[in-house]
């Protein structure tokens, strides 16, 4: 997590954060084409961008995705739900580069079946964390039920990211490396954590995402064993989703 704080001292990273944020927001707005849930979420091709930026700019993309989503929300209504959008997009951009860095030494441009598999896992993990966060928050606030929103978000984010991100990365990654603007170039190489830490981190992140998303869905449609059901539906959801998110965040912090 250290680099998420340290990056603020670097003017280039600060600029890239603003770039990621405004870029995300700017592509979100003109292509707000099909509202999936009016006022809450649209089919957004721009949602591939936090993933692309994550691989390129690391921590700058993490803050950039969170702030960019916030700015996008400025144009469609500022509300308490934006806090969850902020955290959700933060995790959505945090998971891909952290997990990829932990699991692979190659460029994040999937070409082999193994690389594709890993790519799908890291993107879907990020999308799942985002979906669980936003779904939980907006259900508790009374906007949209978890069972609807979380599934819309994970599908929208995964599909756009899996279709667009590999295309974009194939073109952008080498170019960004050439102009020395990859986060590793700007902030220096990341010291490799120990193997134990890597395994633990990856395991926690994926397990946490599974618990939060799958568990959340189970809670939302009421198929949990009675021992898991708390006093109210919102509380039941909180008991499942929040620990899952915390586990995943802890796992990502280890990487």
């Amino acid at each position: 997590m250290h680099e998420l704080i340290l990056m603020w001292r670097n003017t280039r990273m600060v600029v890239l954060t603003a770039m990621c944020a405004s870029f995300y927001a700017a592509v979100l707005i003109p292509f707000l084409v099909v509202p999936i849930i009016p006022g809450v979420t649209h089919f957004r091709p721009a949602n591939a961008l936090p993933v692309v930026c994550s691989f390129l700019f690391g921590p700058a993309a993490v803050w950039g995705a969170a702030i960019g989503n916030l700015i996008g929300d400025f144009f469609t209504g500022l509300g308490p739900g934006d806090l969850f959008g902020f955290i959700g997009n933060f995790l959505y951009a945090l998971a891909p580069y952290r997990l990829w860095r932990a699991c692979a030494s190659s460029d994040p441009v999937p070409r082999t079946p193994t690389a594709w598999l890993l790519f799908v896992v890291v993107v879907v993990t990020g999308a799942g964390l985002c979906a669980a966060t936003v779904g939980f928050g907006l259900q508790v606030l009374g906007f949209v039920p978890f069972a609807v929103l979380a599934n819309v978000v994970i599908v929208n984010n995964s599909v756009t990211a899996l279709v667009l991100a590999p295309l974009l990365l194939a073109v952008l990654y080498p170019r960004v490396r050439r102009v020395r603007l990859l986060h590793g170039d700007i902030m220096g190489p990341h010291p490799a954590p120990s193997t134990v830490r890597l395994v633990l981190g990856v395991g926690l992140a994926i397990a946490g995402a599974l618990v939060a998303f799958v568990g959340g869905n189970c809670a939302a449609v009421g198929v949990l064993p009675p021992s898991f059901v708390a006093a109210t539906p919102d509380l039941t959801l909180a008991v499942i989703v929040l620990p899952g998110l915390a586990l995943a965040a802890a796992g990502l912090a280890l990487l």
């Binding site: 603020w8 600060v14 600029v15 954060t17 603003a18 770039m19 944020a21 405004s22 870029f23 927001a25 700017a26 592509v27 707005i29 003109p30 803050w63 950039g64 702030i67 960019g68 916030l70 700015i71 400025f74």
Partner: peptide, 22 residues
């Protein structure tokens, strides 16, 4: 923190620039 608020302002100002470009 100041720099976080600054990024918010700067990003906000850049949105129309990128929007036009898009």
């Amino acid at each position: 923190p100041y720099r976080a608020g600054f990024v918010l302002t700067l990003a906000f100002r850049l949105v129309p620039v990128f929007f036009e470009a898009a």
